[in-house]
């Protein structure tokens, strides 16, 4: 059974629509992992609205069952949920995963954003069945996918997920300040060209991914004024892909200040870095509307 990854929102922090962002898109984080009929949704940023509309077209009236995995609940990862049209249909069912046994934090925060102070429709008025679920001890089987999670570095906590099926692996690791996880945090300043070293559990989590979707929000020039904001230098993300021997790297969570040209330049630098480190990984900028066949 073939499975696919599709990008519905790739922008970080806040939507950035307009002529400057047509190519990579202005919607915030939302990535679909699907193998008909399995539907897994990574984050519910504003890209989720268009995924919802597309699902209605694709499913042609059939009930929709989906699994939401939220990296965390900052605005740019949950704002699309109230506009996810399938959530309003009583025939549909969605599970919202916490990362450990009995963890309802994500479910509660997601529903909390629909209190009347924030949004005109209450969560309780959504007519689909929406229930909390969890990944047990950090690993669960979800409709034929082996799903794992690991905590990464972001203010307020954030989690990366891996999806494995039929010998192929995808890792979704956004909102992660890799530069704050380095074994030697001074190394990028002391020797910017040297390959950066990461904690072994993180490298093992990512190892061998056919596709790593990772936080590469900043260029090397932008990062020093954003230290501690929870996002990576794109070049550091490249080094993780090199260390973990990933086959493809999608640089994700583009800074809202970056135009398409800026993202193009960022990706060029990432490709040069990967090549300098003798990596054969295919490096590209995640962009809205791009769909890859994984297996």
């Amino acid at each position: 059974m073939s499975w696919f990854v599709k990008f519905w929102g790739t922008r970080g922090s806040i939507p950035a629509p307009g002529p400057q962002s047509r190519k990579y898109g202005g919607n915030t984080s939302c990535v679909e992992v699907h193998a008909d009929p399995a539907l897994l949704i990574c984050d519910g940023g504003t890209g989720l609205r268009e995924l919802g509309l597309d699902l209605l077209k694709r499913k042609k009236g059939e009930p929709i069952r989906g699994h939401f995995l939220f990296s965390h609940t900052h605005w740019d990862h949950i704002q699309g949920f109230p506009f996810f049209t399938p959530a309003y249909d009583p025939r549909n069912e969605f599970l919202v995963y916490g990362t450990s046994r009995g963890d309802r934090r994500t479910f509660d925060l997601l529903s909390g954003q629909m209190r009347s102070e924030y949004f005109p429709v209450e969560f309780s008025e959504l007519r689909s069945r929406i229930a909390p679920a969890d990944l047990g001890d950090g690993h669960a089987h979800v409709e034929g996918f082996s799903v794992r999670c690991i905590e990464v570095k972001h203010p307020g906590r954030s989690f990366a997920f891996s999806f494995e099926k039929e010998g192929k692996k995808v890792v979704y690791a956004t909102d992660n300040e890799l530069d704050q996880m380095l074994a030697d945090p001074d190394q990028p300043t002391r020797d910017p060209s040297a390959l950066r070293a990461f904690p072994e559990p993180l490298v093992e989590f990512v190892r061998g991914a056919d596709l790593l979707i990772g936080d590469g929000q900043y260029t090397d020039e932008e990062y020093p004024t954003h230290v501690g904001w929870g996002h990576s230098r794109a070049t550091t993300l490249v080094d993780l892909a090199v260390a973990a021997e990933c086959r493809q790297l999608a640089v994700f969570h583009h800074d809202p200040m970056q135009s398409d040209r800026d993202v193009d330049r960022k990706i060029d630098l990432c490709r040069e870095r990967a090549a300098r480190h003798k990596s054969k990984a295919v490096v590209f900028g995640a962009r809205e509307g791009l769909e890859l066949r994984i297996g």
Binding site: F4, K6, R22, K23, Q248, V282, F284, R287, E288, G289, L290, E291, L292, R293
Partner: peptide, 24 residues
């Protein structure tokens, strides 16, 4: 939008093998 019709050699968009993509 471009769609690969299960072609033998695939469709590469700017060097990335894709299943479908909005074109620019």
């Amino acid at each position: 939008t471009v769609f690969d019709l299960d072609s033998r050699n695939g469709v590469y968009l700017n060097g990335v093998k894709i299943h479908s993509a909005v074109l620019h």
